[in-house]
Write a protein that binds this DNA or RNA. Structure first.
Length: 427
DNA sequence: ACTTCCCGCCAGTCC
DNA sequence: GGACTGGCGGGAAGT
């Protein structure tokens, strides 16, 4: 329990847990005696309807809710989490809990056991989950068998178009299958071999999967920051409907909120472009202000409690001299994109094999997790380096149509984006 | 005006 | 057939 409430304290107007919003915002003091915010008012109208206090969405952000969720359950004695319980304690409607739980699950913080029932793994589960994600991504890229269920091959040949409600969406589809393996299988019953089409379609757009794919972007592209636009583009591929894009971006906002509240990513701003983007931190931890584990100090931040984002858009970090240096970053981005595009292209074009690094199986960059505060940054930089090298020497080979499509999208997206950047900087 | 993202409808799934 | 899940996008808060 983080005593001090998230500093932002927008409106002193009222105290404590008087509205669901407030509840969501105030770290749940004590898990045991939850003080279910009056009437669990939560959801819908209730909290809104009858409160004089100006409604503030900041107090109800997913990120904040996530922080509280974590604060509530990140403790030794917690094992099983009931959704109802969580919703009640946090004073929000169930729907929100689903959102959170889905992304938490996809980064290994908890796992679904049964309907309404999750098992808390804690931050300790994150490194492994990330590692696996990374490995899987690499495996996909390398073309080694990713144990795709056979349906996949069939779905894979399906159109690659994705606008609106078509089934098939090859790119995500391939991903979803693979991803869902670890995510879903862990929990659900393994059955349902035949009735998959529908659920697949649904699954492939799930928040959890999107989260993993988003994370994968950070893990596999050596770029340091990714804006949500870019992310959406990369995840969707080119030639998607405008509305599709918007929806995707909306989802990415949700995800980014949660991930940043977990400290996996951090919102930054490209100082020149002003374009908000996210930087991978990779060190999941509880955001808390007064307690021990506070690595990665916000450096030049005078912010006592830098809210993930949303609460704090003033969070324009000025770490110029440091990691960020947008100019440098941009160049790097371009280089990175260029490299990746080139290698991908080469592969896609001729499916030629050559030597590539088995990321997951070799030591170099694979074991970064678990370090302390200061080494973290260095580690990260190093990791980035590794990735750069990796990207250059990477020679993925696609044996699977779906993967081909997937990376075709990546390549396309990167290419056009890269061209834009080039043009932009040149002029 | 544009960005961010909460909210809750409602369709799909599960039991 | 009711409960659980969660995609989705309208639209309002925030910048």
């Amino acid at each position: 329990m983080d005593a001090a409430a998230p500093a932002p304290a927008p409106g002193p107007s009222f105290s404590g847990a008087e509205s669901s919003a407030a509840a969501a915002q105030q770290p749940p003091v004590d898990p045991q005696e939850h003080v279910p915010v009056q009437g669990a008012g939560s959801g819908s109208g209730v909290a809104r309807g009858c409160h004089h206090h100006a409604y503030s969405r900041k107090q109800k952000s997913l990120g904040l809710l996530c922080s509280n969720f974590v604060a509530l359950y990140d403790r030794e004695d917690v094992e099983v989490i009931g959704l109802d319980d969580a919703a009640k304690r946090l004073g929000v409607e169930r729907r929100r809990i689903y959102d959170i739980v889905n992304v938490l699950e996809s980064v290994g913080i908890l796992v679904r056991r049964a309907k309404n029932r999750y098992t808390w793994l804690g931050f300790g589960g994150v490194p492994a989950a990330l590692k696996e994600l990374k490995e899987r991504a690499l495996r996909e890229m390398s073309g080694s068998p990713v144990l795709l269920p056979m349906e996949d091959s069939s779905t894979a040949n399906l159109s690659d178009d994705e606008d609106d409600e078509k089934l098939g969406d090859a790119d995500e589809d391939a991903e979803s299958e693979k991803l869902s393996q670890s995510v879903d299988n862990t929990s659900d019953k393994p059955d349902a071999p035949s009735c998959r089409l529908r659920s697949d379609h649904r699954k492939e757009k799930s928040l959890g999967l999107l989260t993993q794919n988003f994370v994968k972007l950070f893990l596999t592209m050596e770029v340091e920051t990714i804006s949500l636009d870019e992310g959406a583009k990369l995840l969707l591929g080119e030639g998607h409907a405008e509305s599709n894009m918007r929806t995707k971006v909306r989802r990415l906002y949700d995800i980014a909120n949660v991930l940043s509240s977990l400290n996996l990513i951090e919102k930054t701003q490209q100082t020149d472009t002003r374009k908000p983007a996210f930087r991978w931190l990779g060190q999941a931890k509880r955001k808390q202000e007064n307690n021990v584990m506070v690595a990665l100090p916000p450096s030049s931040k005078a912010m006592p409690n830098k809210r993930a984002f949303g609460t704090d858009l003033t969070n324009i970090d000025n770490k110029r001299g440091k990691l960020d240096s947008t100019a440098e970053n941009k160049v790097k981005l371009m280089q990175g994109a260029g490299n990746i595009v080139k290698t991908f292209e080469r592969q896609l074009g001729q499916g030629k094999r050559s030597d590539f690094v088995y990321g997951p199986f070799h030591p170099a960059s694979a074991k970064k997790q678990e370090t302390d505060d200061q080494t973290v940054k260095q580690q990260e930089r190093k990791t980035i380096q590794d990735w750069e090298n990796l990207a250059v020497s990477f020679r993925p080979q696609y044996q699977n149509q779906a993967l081909n499509d997937l990376f075709g999208h990546y390549v396309e997206a990167w290419k056009s984006w890269y061209l834009d950047l080039t043009r932009e900087t040149r002029s």
